[in-house]
Computed example of a mutant assay.
Amino acid sequence: MRAMNAKFLLIAALIVLGCKDPDPIEDGQATAWGDQPALPAVQGEATFSLSASETSVSVMGNTLPRMPNFPALSAKKGVVRGYVADLSGKPLEGAYIGIRSTATGGYYSGASDETDAKGYYEIQVPWGTAEFYAAGYTIDYGEGRAVMSLYASDGKVGSFPSGDGLVKNFVLLSYGVFNKDLVSQRPNDPTNYAGGSLYITYNVSDPSSVYNPPSYIPENAEIQVMLTPDGPGLYGEQKKFVINKKASLQNYNFLIMNVPVGRYAISVRLKDGPPLHMEAVGRYAGVYPYFGLKLGEAIGTAKLLFTPDIGAENATTPPNRGKWGSIQIKVDVPE
C-alpha cells in the first residue's frame, strides 16, 4: 500500500510539473484573483454647455476608473507575461497581446499570445528593444461584435529591454483617458479616450447672406443633444448626458467624446424648440449593419450604438488607443 501511494504521488507530481502554472510565488503556491473593489458608480445626469467657440467635450472628463486587483507575478528574464481582466476583475480569455523587437539594422521581429481561461499570457520576447504593438479584445455589442483596445494597468506601453523581462497587466475599459499627455496635446482626438464618440455637424444661417435655407440652424440658437442609456452599459453604467451647443458661424460641428460604452437613445432638438432631423453621414455611415444611428435617418429621437473602427482586429489594435469610430450625424431643421 505504501508503494502504491508513493506511485500515485509521483504521478501527481509529474502532472503538476507538466502543467503551465502562470503565477507561482516564492513558496511554490499559486496566487489567485482576490477580492475586487466595487465597480465605479456611473449614474445620474450630467449637463454640459459649449460656447460658440468650443468644439468638443469629454463627458466623463479626464478621469480613469480604478484598476482591478491582479494576481502577483514576478519578472522572468526574456519573457513578458501578465493578465488581462475586465474592470470588475474578471479574467478575459482570448485577448490578443503582441510584442515586437527592433534588432540591429532596424529589422522587426514579433511574437504574440492569446490569454487563457485565467486571463494569463506569456511571450518569449525577441531579442532587441521591445514594445507592445497590439492589445485587443473582442466583445459582444448589440447584435454584433466589436474590437476594443486594452489599457495597460500602469498606463505605460513604452519600449523596454527584451532581456530583463516584464510583467504587464491589461484592462478592458468602457471609458477613461488612455494618456493624459496626449489629451493635453490633442484634446479633440477621440482615440485618446476609451469611450465612444459622435460628431454632430450642421449648417448655420448667415444673416448677411441671401441664401439661408429653412433647414439651417439659426445663429445663436442652442443645439441640445441628449444621450439616454437604453439599458446598462458595459459595466452597468446608466448615466444620462445632456450637451447644449451654441450655434455660430465660427464652426459647424462639435465632438461628444468618452461616452461609456453601451446602448443609447439619442435625442436632438433646438433647446426650448422643435426636434431636429438627424442623418448618419460620413465615413462610418452604413458600414456595419448593427452599429451607428438606427434608423439612419430620423426626427427627434433614434437608437445609437457606437461604431468600431473600420477593419479593426485584435492583432492590429494598439494598446491605450481608442478603436471606436466617431459617428457623424448631420442635424437640421425639418422642412
Score class of each variant (00 low, 15 high):
F178I: 00
S326Y: 03
D21M: 06
Y151L: 06
Q124T: 08
T115Q: 12
E131Y: 11
V268I: 15
D230C: 09
I266F: 07
Q36Y: 11
F8E: 12
I243E: 09
M278E: 12
I123N: 06
P260R: 07
V204S: 14
I11G: 05
P126K: 08
P334H: 10
F48W: 07
A285Q: 10
P334G: 08
N192A: 05
V204P: 12
P24T: 04
D113W: 02
S174L: 01
Y175R: 06
V242L: 07
N169F: 01
T63V: 00
E219L: 01
A280K: 03
V16P: 02
S162H: 03
S208K: 14
T317Y: 05
A152H: 13
S49D: 02
K239P: 01
P274W: 00
L198V: 00
E219T: 03
P289G: 06
L295Y: 14
K90M: 06
K156E: 10
F8N: 12
G236P: 04
I99E: 08
Y290K: 14
Y202R: 10
G18V: 02
V16S: 13
L198Y: 15
G106Q: 10
F70T: 06
V183Y: 05
Y199D: 13
N320Y: 04
D164G: 11
P24V: 01
Q29T: 13
Y96W: 13
P190V: 00
A247L: 02
